[in-house]
């Protein structure tokens, strides 16, 4: 069935609430309003105020109490309203959530999922368009995933909730309204795996979250010029699942990594290093990166200049043939 990405998340959360009564949803405006993006729409009405909790306006409080609930045996799914508002909770996530299992020598599990709508492209004011993934991927003990399409959204959120790891769950907010097929009965691929989403032979383009759509569009445009791009949806940012990337780059000899976040000390830095280490003798060109610039996210009227788009991806693809 075709659903929007937002609705697919809603259905995935609903199914998680149905299948385990220790699952609780908490966050600002997630109850009566159904969240500012309506991802939790109707859930409080059907599951009650004890399972879908409108919290006070304090992100550190949301994550800190979720950790307490998790210690008590619950499975909290926290919504952070926008990417730029996760930072008040940074200490609870990085110093507490990430390290609990390690510090307790494996005795204390904190299966908290932190949902964050991330990325730009919606014409918003500051703090509403950021890509904070590297901060979290840099932190041992956290798992970080990003969905890019409705089917993955539906399955990945359920997999994240049912696992015992704390998971930072990144949702590409500008894709919330895009539709795609959801197979409700098929069994999903493992959560922490990347996936080839379009096959090709000339260049490997690696992306995640909102940029997967951009990469696919670039591949379609390139095909018209007779160039064959393979697109890989990374899906998991920590741990990385780079087997499919290495396999692909060994065939194509060229690799371009795309994300909205700035390039400096980023996921693409990590990918470039690892692909170079593992595929050195197959590479026809250095690994190129198409990313946001190393600046704060700019005002809305100039965000199109900041965000990687089809042209910038194709430009990088072209450049891999120039070496």
């Amino acid at each position: 069935m075709a659903e929007t990405l937002g609705k697919a998340l809603n259905l995935g959360l609903r199914r998680a609430l149905e299948s385990d009564d220790r699952v609780v949803i908490m966050g600002e405006d997630v109850g009566k309003l159904g969240g500012v993006f309506r991802i939790t729409d109707g859930l409080q009405k059907d599951f009650g105020e004890q399972r879908v909790i409108d919290t006070p306006l304090a992100e550190s409080g949301i994550i800190g109490t979720a950790i307490g609930l998790a210690i008590r045996g619950y499975r909290p799914v926290c919504e952070i309203q926008f990417d730029g508002f996760v930072y008040p909770a940074y200490d609870q996530i990085v110093s507490q959530l990430a390290k609990m299992y390690y510090r307790s020598q494996g005795n204390v599990r904190v299966p908290v999922v932190v949902r964050i709508p991330f990325g730009g492209g919606i014409g918003a004011v500051e703090h509403h368009s950021e890509s904070p993934e590297a901060y979290f991927a840099h932190t041992a003990g956290l798992k970080v995933v990003a969905c890019s399409n409705p089917n993955d959204a539906y399955w990945m959120i359920q997999q994240a909730i049912s696992g015992d790891d704390p998971v930072i769950f990144l949702e590409p907010k500008r894709r919330y309204w895009e539709k795609g097929e959801v197979s409700f009965d098929a069994s999903p691929i493992p959560l922490f795996s990347s996936q080839v989403v379009r096959q090709g032979t000339d260049v490997t383009v690696v992306a995640y979250g909102p940029m997967v759509r951009t990469a696919l569009d670039a591949a379609t445009a390139a095909a018209e010029d007779g160039r064959s791009i393979e697109v890989i949806d990374l899906r998991t940012l920590s741990p990385l699942d780079l087997g499919p990337v290495y396999e692909s780059v060994r065939r194509t000899g060229r690799c371009v990594v795309v994300h909205e976040a700035p390039s400096h000390v980023s996921l693409s830095s990590e990918l470039a290093a690892r692909v170079t280490e593992q595929c050195f003798y197959s590479l026809e060109a250095p690994v190129l990166r198409v990313t946001g610039f190393d600046t704060p996210y700019p005002p809305a009227r100039v965000e199109e200049e900041y965000l990687p788009d089809l042209d910038r991806v194709l430009d990088a693809v072209d450049r891999t043939f120039g070496f």
Binding site: E28, D29, G31, K32, L33, V36, D54, T55, P56, L57
Partner: peptide, 10 residues
């Protein structure tokens, strides 16, 4: 109100 949340949520 804080968006949808009435005072007694705070």
């Amino acid at each position: 109100y804080a968006i949808s949340e009435p005072l007694e949520r705070q």
